[in-house]
Each structure stands twice: as structure tokens, then as C-alpha cells.
Design a protein around this nucleic acid. Structure first.
Length: 274
DNA sequence: TTTACTGTTGCAGT
DNA sequence: AACTGCAACAGTAA
């Protein structure tokens, strides 16, 4: 489900729903979900209090005093809160956290790509450093000069470059297509061959579109819903994603879909030329 | 029935 | 070093 706006929406929902609550029991029904060991995570978290909800890029962080549980939702991961201890049966529920007020926090993941990791709070910084994550897409953190330098130095096609989380965190396959359309950049353009004005637009549109996505509660295109079961509305602002054959909002040329670095890619063949 | 596709990432290859 | 392809998995649509 998640690109940055969806993860941030989940974070905000959980912040209201679970911060301050203590974990009274843990059950992991799909142990491979927990990279750092399911038994250890279950044993360590009984009695722990959820002190905060944070996020870095697409990684969701449960702050638990001196520890942190990192959740990556990958394609289909979801967090649900049931107000009662009894949870309906569902073959895609893989982790259950009983909370002190009688509610149950459940992790659901149809494709089982998502991961949970339990770290000491001191290991958090190096964890993200190792993944070579770029800056958050907000003014003050996402500087233009380093972005331009890195873009010009690479011969990668710009779309996979923006997706690799090193230039900036948070873009996934939907938002990157929207940013490329708004910036009038073809997804297969080589990074090093982009004009300064195009790089400038990519920088500005990345921040604008991801922030808009957050304001709209994320995009619901397949199965994404927030922790309250609500749809996001960002999909109504999409200009190209899943719009194959429909007229471009700028020039009315039919939107095309091609494959770039293995990902379905939507663009306007008239506005976005190499 | 088979095949291709899917808001992701990391690893093994070249 | 940097880039590509593919695997992890399950469901849906053609």
C-alpha cells in the first residue's frame, strides 16, 4: 500500500489510536514477518509502552521507550486496530498486539512482503544510514544543490533513480509518475541529460505532490485504507497513474503506459519527451 | 488454465 | 561501481 503519503497517514492514525498504551501480549502467526526474530520480539515487547509514532521515508517507527519497532508495509501491509480483544478470523492477519485498554493492534499483509524489526533506539540512526536514504521531501531538509549534483552525476533513467530513495525518500510508482508528468520529464530520460529547469521542477514537484498526498490522506487505488478503514482521496488528483488512453490534462494527448526498469509507467507522449 | 500485472526492496548476477 | 533482473507472495483480470 504505501508510498510516503500513505505511510504518514497511517502514522498519524496510529498516533491517535495507540500512543500511551501498553502491550500486554504479542502473537506472531507468520514468524518470517519479523526479520530480527519473532520469538524475541514477542518476548521483548510484553510490558512495553508505545511512547510515540515516527516515520522515516516509507518506514513506520513504533517508539517503545528505549527500543523501536520498524514496520515496512512494502506492497500491501496494513495496521488495523480492533477495539476489542476478539479479532475476526482472517488468513492475512500475521501479528497481534494486545493493548492495555483491551484493544488489539493487528498487522495484515496479503502478499507477506512487509517486515517488522526490533532495534534499540541507539541503532536507529545507523539502520537508516546503511540503507542510504535521502532527505525527507520537505523544505529545509531537501536541499536543491545536492539533488541537482546527484541527478547530473548519474546515467540512470530518471524514474528508477527517483525510486531508489537515495535522492529523496518517499516516492513510489504512483507518485513518481505524477511528479514526472507535473515536471514534464519523460520517465526514461537519462538523469545526466536533464535540463536545469527540469531538475528544478522535479525538486519542487516532489515536495508539492507528496505534501498534497499527505493532506488528502493518501491515494486509494487498490486496497489501501488507513487504520480507521477510510479511503484516501489523493487518487482524484492523479493526472497519469492508471489513466492510460485518457486525455492529458494539459494537452489532451492520450496518456501512454510503458515499462521502465520493470515498472508500469504512465506519461503524456506530447508533454514528456526525452 | 495460463499469464501478466500489482503504492517495494534487496540481492545475485554482469 | 553501477545497473538489471528477479525473487519474496497472493490475488485479480484478461
Amino acid at each position: 500500500m504505501p508510498e510516503l503519503p500513505e505511510v504518514e497517514t497511517v502514522r498519524r492514525g496510529l498516533e491517535r489510536l495507540v500512543v500511551g498504551k501498553t502491550i500486554t501480549a504479542v502473537e506472531i502467526s507468520y514468524p518470517r514477518l519479523v526479520v530480527t526474530g519473532a520469538d524475541q520480539l514477542a518476548a521483548d515487547l510484553v510490558g512495553a509502552t508505545i511512547t510515540g509514532m515516527a516515520r522515516r521515508g516509507k518506514y513506520l517507527i513504533f517508539e517503545l521507550g528505549d527500543r523501536a519497532m520498524i514496520s515496512h508495509l512494502r506492497m500491501e501491509g496494513k495496521w488495523l486496530l480492533f477495539p476489542q480483544a476478539e479479532v475476526p478470523a482472517n488468513k492475512h492477519f500475521h501479528a497481534f498486539f494486545d493493548l492495555s485498554d483491551g484493544s488489539t493492534l493487528v498487522y495484515q499483509d496479503v502478499r507477506k512482503f512487509g517486515t517488522l524489526e526490533l532495534l534499540g533506539i541507539a541503532e536507529l540512526r545507523s539502520y537508516f544510514t546503511k540503507k542510504k536514504l535521502g532527505p525527507e521531501p520537505v523544505k529545509g531538509e531537501f536541499g536543491y544543490a545536492p539533488f541537482e549534483r546527484a541527478v547530473r552525476a548519474s546515467r540512470k533513467p530518471i524514474k528508477p533513480h527517483l525510486l531508489d530513495q537515495s535522492l529523496v525518500v518517499g516516492l513510489g510508482n504512483i507518485y513518481v509518475d505524477e511528479v514526472l508528468w507535473a515536471s514534464r520529464v519523460h520517465p526514461e530520460s537519462l538523469s545526466s541529460q536533464l535540463k536545469p529547469a527540469q531538475i528544478k521542477r522535479l525538486h519542487a514537484e516532489t515536495m508539492r505532490i507528496l505534501q498534497l498526498g499527505i493532506e488528502k490522506g493518501g491515494s486509494t487505488v487498490r486496497t489501501y485504507r488507513n487504520a480507521l478503514g477510510e479511503d484516501g482521496t489523493m487518487q482524484t488528483y492523479h493526472q497519469v497513474y492508471a489513466k492510460t488512453g485518457q486525455p492529458c490534462g494539459r494537452c489532451a494527448a492520450p496518456i501512454e503506459k510503458i515499462k521502465v526498469a520493470g515498472r508500469g509507467s504512465h506519461f503524456c507522449p506530447n508533454c514528456q519527451k526525452i
